[in-house]
């Protein structure tokens, strides 16, 4: 086992604990938005897809990398936009806020 692997494994174990602790008490009404939000976060595979396509040498690697970037982009923008739409619905009795005109998900995909 190399030190690089051990380092990654350390990060993995610590992140597992953080992930487990960070959402200790969630009201059931937020179960779905939370699922959708964490769904968007694993869209970070887009970073990996970009690296794979960016370092492709053969035609096969280029095709697969290209597919991966499309799929991962879908995951990122779709995940954040759907979550935002769900959460937009949670308003309290205060007067309506104007809808924000920006599109957070698109920003994530195209910057």
């Amino acid at each position: 086992m190399t030190n690089g692997l051990l380092e990654l494994f350390t990060i993995f174990v610590l992140a597992a604990f953080v992930g487990y602790e960070v959402i200790s008490k969630v009201p059931s009404i937020l179960h779905t938005p939370l699922m959708s939000g964490s769904n968007a976060i694993h869209g970070v595979i887009l970073v990996g897809s970009m690296v794979v396509l960016g370092s492709a040498h053969t035609g096969a690697e280029e095709v697969l990398g290209f597919i991966a970037v499309i799929l991962a982009t879908l995951n990122v923008v779709g995940g954040f936009v759907v979550t935002d739409r769900m959460l937009q619905m949670f308003r309290s009795r205060q007067p309506d806020r104007p809808r924000s005109s920006g599109d957070p998900g698109a920003a994530g995909g195209s910057s």
Binding site: I11, F12, A15, Y20, I23, S38, I41, G48
Partner: peptide
Amino acid sequence: NSNVLVVAGTLVGASGTLL
């Protein structure tokens, strides 16, 4: 060998299991 993928993926894996 990507830290950010390991962290984000594991976060979702662990919190998703709890959820």
